[in-house]
Simulated assay, not measured.
Amino acid sequence: MSAASEQFSTHSEPIWRERADFIINAQLSEVGGFEQLWVRRVGEDQFEVCCIPYFLYNVALGDTIETAPQGGRQYVLSRVLNPSGRFVFRAYFERPHYRYRDATAVGVQRLGAQIEWSSPSLLAVDVDGPSAQRVADYLQDQEDAGRLVYETGKSA
């Protein structure tokens, strides 16, 4: 695979930017797809995630992860060593529903969540364990009202 055919999703405003001191890559399920994660180095090949994953599953803000060389890259996510106990949700807004974006962002933040925008259409949401169900219920209500589509950051 050539570098020209690779696609990288980046975080322009990572939620814990002040903690981060490194950027690693995480391979996505689509061929040539990577998400660049802002992280804080805690060991030779171990890092704390300092952003809310946009596309990765089973990785959350605050997780301690391990990297390994892969495909010519030195630091590629290989596994989660210590889950933070935080939850990730993603809300997708189709263009006709952009008018609901700001209210949704404010709504989840009022419930204790933190957010990062990937694009005008995709909102990544981080929340601690005790608040996760309230945020999930809120996002489900918004989806039921036809304002967005949401998912959790956990795979089955």
Rank of each mutant, 00 (worst) to 15 (best):
F55K: 14
Y75P: 02
C51A: 11
E66I: 03
Y98N: 05
I52Y: 01
V80Q: 00
R95V: 14
E66M: 11
V76F: 05
P53D: 08
E35C: 09
D63Y: 04
T67F: 01
R86Q: 12
A60G: 06
R73H: 12
F55P: 05
I65K: 05
Y57S: 14
V80W: 01
V76P: 02
G72Q: 11
P96Q: 11
C51Y: 01
L61R: 02
F47E: 02
R40I: 07
D45V: 13
F93Q: 05
V80G: 01
G85E: 05
Q27I: 09
E48I: 15
G85C: 07
F55G: 08
L56P: 02
L77C: 08
C51H: 01
L37W: 00
E48D: 13
G85I: 07
Y92P: 02
S29D: 15
G85T: 06
G32S: 10
V31W: 00
G33F: 02
D45Q: 13
F93H: 06
S29L: 14
L77I: 07
R95K: 12
R79E: 13
P83G: 07
V80F: 00
Y75M: 10
R90H: 12
F47Q: 03
R99L: 15
A91G: 10
L77V: 06
R95I: 13
P53C: 09
G71I: 14
G32E: 09
A68P: 00
G71P: 00
E30K: 07
Q70N: 13
Y98S: 11
C51F: 01
G62V: 04
G85N: 04
G85Y: 02
V49C: 05
A60H: 08
R90V: 08
C50M: 08
C50Q: 02
G32D: 10
E66K: 11
G71T: 14
